[in-house]
């Protein structure tokens, strides 16, 4: 299990096809981890690219950290990770909250990016996004698992429920993630988004709550294309191979 030190903290990374000329860096979403890419998406991309995945702080197998969940801090982390791995310029793709990190990266450090893919990034001002953050409770998790995870077909057992509950409890009640996210609610109004000049691909589920956010970004980012795919917010889990192939050909051409 490759764990490296970035700014003196343990970060779990996975790499495929290290010898390839160009690198694709993948950023996962909140309460998730790099496994969202590891099984199906990363291997397809690795047919042509060096692929790097990492677990965000306090997620997956990376070290727990009490603060710094705002997009400036998360992109500082990513910049530092690229430094440690000697990555000069990468194709960057992010899913959900990871999509916001990827976009912020294009706004702050365009010199570090080739092309950009944003998958299902939500508008942080959306009441539903904030609702999840503000109203977390054990009951919420149980309800959420019972009602919403069926689209990914995976049911959580008791041990997993406990593990997830511990992670949510830690993130919600001990770290600054809640306050940091509330502070980001004006993110889509930042004028720097309009200044992003990277070729950008926006992938959204046609029946996702976030599709509206995709349309907004499509208007703001000049060189962007929006592709709605059949599915909801969970499209990377529902259609991993399709996503991987679309992303791969976008980065190749």
């Amino acid at each position: 299990m490759p764990v490296i030190k970035v700014n003196n903290r343990d970060v779990h990374i996975q790499e495929l096809n290290k010898g390839a000329a160009e690198t694709v860096l993948l950023v996962h979403g909140m309460f998730s981890n790099l496994s969202v890419y590891y099984f199906n998406i990363a291997p397809v991309l690795a047919e042509h690219f060096h692929v790097v995945m990492y677990d965000l702080k306090s997620h997956g197998m990376s070290e727990r950290v009490l603060d710094g969940y705002d997009l400036d801090s998360m992109t500082d982390d990513l910049y530092a990770l690229m430094d440690v791995l000697n990555l000069d310029k990468v194709h960057l793709a992010g899913y959900s909250f990871g999509g916001l990190i990827a976009l912020k990266m294009a706004m702050r450090f365009p010199q570090k990016l080739r092309k950009l893919v944003i998958i299902e990034a939500p508008d942080p001002s959306d009441a539903r996004t904030r609702g999840i953050i503000e109203e977390y409770s054990r009951e919420f998790l149980e309800h959420y698992v019972a009602n919403f995870t069926d689209t990914t077909k995976v049911k959580m057992g008791k041990r997993q429920m406990e593990r997830n509950h511990r992670m949510y409890e830690y993130l919600f009640y001990q770290t600054s993630i809640k306050q940091d996210m509330i502070r980001e609610s004006g993110f889509f109004k930042e004028t720097e988004i309009n200044a992003v000049k990277k070729d950008t691909l926006l992938l959204y589920g046609a029946s996702s709550n976030c599709l509206q956010a995709g349309k907004q970004l499509n208007k703001m980012i000049h060189r962007s294309d929006l592709i709605p795919l059949e599915g909801d917010h969970n499209i990377p889990i529902q259609e991993p191979v399709m996503i991987a192939e679309i992303v791969s050909s976008f980065f190749k051409n």
Binding site: N33, S35, V36, Y38, D55, M156, G157, K158, Q160, R163
Partner: peptide, 12 residues
């Protein structure tokens, strides 16, 4: 189902 391993555990 039986071992209740989640995907990050299967990665390990």
């Amino acid at each position: 189902k039986d071992l209740e391993m989640d995907s990050i555990e299967i990665v390990s």
